[in-house]
Design a protein around this nucleic acid. Structure first.
Lengths: 223, 223
DNA sequence: GACACCATACCAACCAATCGGTATGTTTAT
DNA sequence: ATAAACATACCGATTGGTTGGTATGGTGTC
């Protein structure tokens, strides 16, 4: 008793951790129940099936990370190019602690489920796509200002950034070294800098002044 | 009867396909036996355990892909910069057919096994690292010729290339669209081109002359 | 304000199916 | 004959999922 909804939330939180550590199939319902101090009956009271729980976990992940990124400091950066680079710094700063703590649930899940669990695959894809979309206006603005004639689209670059991040996580797991992820982000940052060259007369590198970006954007909450 | 060693090889070939499609845990020993038309007794005659079979499959994968890349046409390109770009073209050209056919076994396996099966994780890491190493002399030579003062190392770029490829596969699975992988490779190619700028007086773009690269390299077999 | 009513949250015990693995053969090439 | 290469039948453990039940707190009725 005590806090209603607590068992469900506890299960979802535990699911984020466990799925990232062991993957979807290797994570058993009992694993989740044990870790959340919940009986199996409670589990199947809240979720129709293991797959439904994973879907709920993906949704949980999306709201969790959505809030994290909405409140992140890079939104305070006015210049879109600098803001995009600050986003990458933010991603790099999150590479800390153990691998299952900073890697991406969606990328991990989709690797094993893309063929056998279409619903999960679609949910992971939608989640990644949605996150990529949050970058598009920034990239669009940066492109207009710094590389108006570029032959790449903002959507394409936004997706590519996600790809590099996912790939960095894979390599970090393979080499058992978080630095592999940091290295990938560093190369990615260099790429973005090269895509958006700073013309000499336009080097208005502000950094700390907090002005809201005019177009559609998450509200820049102070943290 | 018939061909000795055939059952083992058949199991390994089937394992490459199945592990890539369903992942390690979701692939059962019976799955492999059924697909290879082999009984369970035969399976455990050739492999001590499921994990041992997966390790053998990784080794099988390494020799298979090792041979594929050794014989690949990009080795025929003399200029190291052009050879590196030809490698990326080769990787892009392999993105065809269904996802489980062109994605990477090592990246798929390591995502679920990095925490629970250290032996598999290490084998996948070693395999990726070994493949990255085949690019290092080429990158080194390209760097010496085109960007001698660059602040990145050949090893770092070789690893980054693998990261982008892995990330492209993840995104292709998530968005259920191989074009995501191609997009990532296209961005990666642009990055490499930018890292190794062609000076105007050095634009000696040969293409077809087959000269062995001087340092340690796989023999450039004609195909 | 007492009491029936009921939905939600949770629990312990259980189930058929399937898992990786084994024991004990039989076949086949040398 | 001998050993490797299979095949059959089986095992205990675990899997996702179900069962029938209880505890609790809110709500309508008189």
């Amino acid at each position: 008793m005590a806090d209603a909804e607590s068992a469900r939330t506890r299960l979802l939180d535990v699911a984020l951790r466990t799925f990232r550590e062991k993957g979807y199939t290797a994570t058993t319902v009992d694993d989740l129940c044990r870790a959340a101090c919940v009986t199996k009956g409670a589990f199947f009271h809240h979720f129709d099936s293991k797959e439904a729980a994973a879907l709920a976990a993906v949704e949980h992940w999306n709201t969790r990370t959505g809030a994290l990124f909405e409140a992140a400091p890079y939104w305070q950066v006015e210049d879109p190019r600098a803001r995009l680079l600050a986003y990458l710094d933010f991603r790099a700063a999150r590479v800390r602690g153990e691998l299952p703590e900073f890697t991406c649930l969606l990328g991990t899940l989709v690797q094993e489920t893309f063929a056998s669990h279409p619903a999960l695959q679609a949910a992971c894809g939608a989640g990644i796509e949605a996150h990529a979309q949050t970058l598009v206006p920034t990239i669009e603005a940066a492109r207009a200002r710094y590389a108006p004639k570029a032959d790449w689209s903002a959507e394409s670059l936004a997706r590519h950034i996600q790809a590099v991040l996912q790939g960095g996580f894979v390599l970090a797991k393979a080499l058992n070294d978080p630095r592999a992820a940091l290295e990938a982000i560093a190369h990615l940052k260099r790429y973005v800098e090269g895509l958006l060259p700073v013309r000499r007369n336009e080097a208005r590198n502000n950094a700390s002044l907090a002005t809201r970006f005019p177009t559609r954007h998450p509200p820049s909450k102070r943290r």
